[in-house]
Design a protein around this nucleic acid. Structure first.
Lengths: 233, 233
DNA sequence: ACTTTTAGTGGACAAGTGTACACAATGCAG
DNA sequence: CTGCATTGTGTACACTTGTCCACTAAAAGT
């Protein structure tokens, strides 16, 4: 407020490209903000986004041809965000006591911290424009892949084939993404509900991993005539 | 086409309530149709729906106060649809050879048969209006509950506590609903991709049920100090 | 020092939206 | 048979929307 011309070289003298990127990010953030206010991305309009970003509607076209293209840019951020999540998750270490629970806590915290992006993923993953859907699914697929690699790196489930490992990670990711909306819809400051949800989520993941530790890749075709198992499957 | 006044008592002489229900269903179907054409429910407008239903925009208000209320009516249909699904699934019988695979095939067929409704569920379950989201989640929760009861009735997993059984069914349902959009997005007539997806889905469910059959409800607190398990969890 | 590029502005237009009001037709209760 | 309630119509109004065009200012290239 006091000295503006003194050290203000940060706000003032920017190369053109930097400025452009600045308002571009402004647009992305504006879209996310609107999503955070309950609007669904698919129903967002150019004018709406531009208004929220504080620019005139026409300027939108200097950055994106239409809202779908902006959506794709958001999907790219989703990719980065998921990669960071994996990096954070790796830091819970491979020491295994309570590992699942700690991972779940990290995940929940991460989802809340990146609320808007996860709102975006969750809703556009199944709804809205086909292009966005596929792009997100692609990003999620990458995420699943990397998770499987991490498992390998940790030396877990070494007996499993790569395809089985990916199938398992796919299930884990499905559970994670399925839990995201419930995390985000939690009524603020309800520690009871949250703890309950957490516990349920933890148990679900434990169940998956328990199944994984029992899983055996069928050599050729073994299940086609599974003779008399106790009472399951 | 030919004889109109002869047997046309079906189209012509209807009690008022019946007629009302007819156009009401017309509105519901219209919304679903639009969803089927790629539009997302949240972005549907009153005029749009009314136009598709073949009535004047204002007549919409004779049936619903706004689009959200129509959405709630759709959620009710979702409930009925899910209940029917359970009924069909029960008919695969408890004879267990290939039971999972057959259930998956039933499910896939059912999703394709009720394409529009599942499109609606999938996208509104995580996105759009909070009221709709919660309503759908409620319906899904009912579904999970009934599925758990069915397991009980079949005498499967008798060793498990009710809460564990529900946790497991929750996971199954999450996997099912997560698979729905992928089923619906399948490029038409690509038997390779479809078979691959089916197989993956089957294995995921088998993994869950395998985990379930190994699962033991922890007596008091056993996992808090799980001493030295091989290399999993 | 000049020209060129380009991010952002401003105004305009046709089209679409939600909703309010007055009205028409008709099944139904008295 | 008559009057009422209710389903659906038509018109109208104030807004919002996407996009076109002409324009400014200033950074970047020469």
């Amino acid at each position: 407020m006091a000295s503006a011309t003194h050290v203000a070289k940060r706000e003032d003298s920017l190369t053109r490209g930097e400025r452009k990127n600045l308002t571009r990010n402004g647009l992305l953030q504006a879209a996310l903000n609107l999503i955070g206010e309950g609007r669904s991305f698919t129903s967002l309009g150019i004018r709406e986004i531009a208004r929220e970003a504080g620019i005139v509607p026409n300027a939108f076209y200097r950055h994106f041809r239409n809202t779908d293209e902006l959506g794709l840019a958001l999907v790219e951020e989703v990719g980065i965000t998921l990669r960071r999540l994996l990096r954070e998750a790796r830091q819970v270490g491979e020491e295994e006591s309570e590992m699942v629970r700690r991972s779940v806590l990290v995940y929940q915290h991460y989802v809340k911290q990146n609320r808007l992006l996860f709102l975006f993923i969750s809703s556009e993953r199944a709804g809205g424009s086909r292009i966005l859907r596929l792009a997100i699914r692609n990003e999620v697929s990458h995420f699943t892949h990397e998770m499987a690699q991490d498992f390998r790196r940790l030396g877990a489930y070494e007996g499993l084939s790569t395809s089985s490992l990916q199938m398992i990670c796919g299930l884990v990711v499905t559970a994670m993404l399925g839990a995201a909306p419930e995390i985000l819809d939690l009524p603020a400051e309800q520690p009871l509900l949250e703890a309950e949800m957490t516990e349920d989520f933890v148990r679900q993941l434990q169940l998956i991993l328990l199944g994984a530790s029992c899983w055996r890749d069928q050599p050729p075709a073994l299940l086609t005539s599974s003779r008399k198992r106790p009472k399951q499957l």
